[in-house]
C-alpha cells in the first residue's frame, strides 16, 4: 500500500511539469499584448513599457520565461500580478473560499445523493424512484445558472432565507445556497449512479445468502448492499472534487464570490501568465491528490483491488 502511494506521488512530478509547461505555453501564445491591455487607451512611454517588460521577464524568449518562472516557483515566489499584488496573496484569499464552497457542495451531493439513490434503488419502480429519476433528469438538463438564479430568487429575494450575494469573507452559512447550486448536477448523477448500483447488488447471490443467514433487512441493506454499491460512487466523487474546485465559475459569478474561478477567468483575459499558471499548477496538484485519495478509498472499499497487480 505504502509502495503504491509512493509510486503515485512520484507520478505527480511529470504531471506537474507537463501541465505547467502546457499552460504557460498557451498563455504565452494568446493573441494581444498584456501591457497594452493593462493600460487600455493611453499607452505609457516606450521606456516604461520596456521597464515593465523586463520586470516581468516578457522580453526574454519563451523557454527562459518558463524556466525563470519555475525556478521562482520552487523558491516560493509565485510572481506578481500586473496590478502589483503578489500571486500568493491572491491565492491565499481565493483558494480558501472556493475550497469551502467545494467541500460544502461535495458534502451535500454525497450525503443527499447517496441517500436518495439508495432509497430509489431499494424501491425501484415505485413512486419515490420515479420522482427521483425525473428530478435528477431535470437537474442534469437545466443549466446551472438557471438553477442558480431560480434558487437565488426564491430563497434570497422572495423568502429572504439567505443572502442573495456572499460577502467578502464568505462565511459558511452564506455559502449554503451557492453550494446547493454547485452540487445540483453532481447530486443528480450520484442519485442515478447509486440507484443503479444498489438495484444491481440487491439481486446479487451474496445478498440472498446474507438474508438466508437470518440477518435483518436493515443490516443486509447497509452491510451487504450499500458498501458494495459505493465503489462507483466514490470514483465519481473523487473526480468531482477537482471539477468543483475549478468549475465553480458560474456559481461564483451568480453569487458574487471572489473564488478561484473568477480570479483565473480575469487573469486569462489579462494574459497574466504567472497568475494563470500558478493557479492551474495548484489545481493540478489538487486533482492528482484527489484521484490518489479515490484510489486509496477504492482499495479500502474493495479488498480485491488491494491485492491486484
Amino acid at each position: 500500500m505504502l509502495w503504491y502511494t509512493g509510486k503515485r506521488l512520484l507520478q505527480m512530478i511529470p504531471v506537474f511539469f507537463g501541465a505547467t509547461f502546457l499552460i504557460y505555453f498557451m498563455v504565452f501564445s494568446l493573441p494581444g499584448d498584456p501591457i497594452a491591455a493593462l493600460y487600455g487607451e493611453r499607452p505609457p512611454s516606450p521606456a516604461v513599457i520596456a521597464q515593465i517588460r523586463s520586470e516581468y521577464n516578457l522580453d526574454k524568449p519563451f523557454i527562459m520565461q518558463y524556466l525563470l518562472y519555475i525556478g521562482n516557483f520552487f523558491q516560493g515566489d509565485l510572481g506578481t500580478t500586473y496590478s502589483g499584488r503578489s500571486v500568493s496573496d491572491v491565492m491565499a484569499s481565493a483558494f480558501p473560499i472556493t475550497a469551502r464552497l467545494a467541500m460544502l457542495a461535495l458534502a451535500f451531493e454525497a450525503l443527499f445523493g447517496i441517500l436518495v439513490g439508495l432509497v430509489a434503488g431499494l424501491r425501484k419502480g415505485k413512486l419515490f424512484d420515479a420522482s427521483a429519476l425525473v428530478v435528477s433528469l431535470l437537474l442534469i438538463s437545466v443549466p446551472t445558472f438557471v438553477i442558480g438564479f431560480v434558487l437565488q430568487f426564491v430563497f434570497g429575494v422572495q423568502l429572504g432565507w439567505a443572502r442573495t450575494t456572499v460577502s467578502g469573507a464568505a462565511p459558511l452559512d452564506e455559502l449554503i445556497l451557492p453550494a446547493l447550486v454547485l452540487a445540483s448536477v453532481s447530486f443528480a448523477y450520484i442519485v442515478r449512479l447509486t440507484r443503479a448500483s444498489v438495484s444491481d447488488n440487491l439481486n446479487a447471490d451474496f445478498v440472498r445468502t446474507a438474508t438466508a443467514k437470518g440477518l435483518s433487512r436493515p443490516r443486509v441493506v447497509t452491510v451487504h448492499v450499500l458498501r458494495n454499491s459505493l465503489v462507483p460512487v466514490v470514483t465519481f466523487l473523487g473526480v468531482d472534487i477537482g471539477s468543483l474546485m475549478v468549475g465553480a465559475i458560474v456559481t461564483e459569478g451568480i453569487f458574487n464570490i471572489n473564488g478561484v474561478g473568477g480570479t483565473v477567468f480575469k487573469a486569462i483575459r489579462l494574459g497574466e501568465g504567472p497568475t494563470v499558471v500558478s493557479f492551474i499548477a495548484v489545481m493540478v496538484v489538487i486533482f492528482v491528490l484527489a484521484n490518489l485519495l479515490v484510489d486509496l478509498l477504492y482499495a479500502a472499499l474493495d479488498p480485491r483491488i488491494r491485492y491486484a497487480k
Binding site: 451474496f206 445468502t209 438466508a212 443467514k213 437470518g214 472499499l301
Partner: peptide
C-alpha cells in the same frame, strides 16, 4: 432463517460478499 433452517447456496464464487 439461519436459526431453524440453514441454507447452503449453489455457487461458492458469488455467494460470499467480496468486500
Amino acid at each position: 432463517r439461519g436459526r431453524q433452517i440453514g441454507y447452503v447456496p449453489q455457487d461458492p464464487m458469488s455467494n460470499l460478499n467480496p468486500v
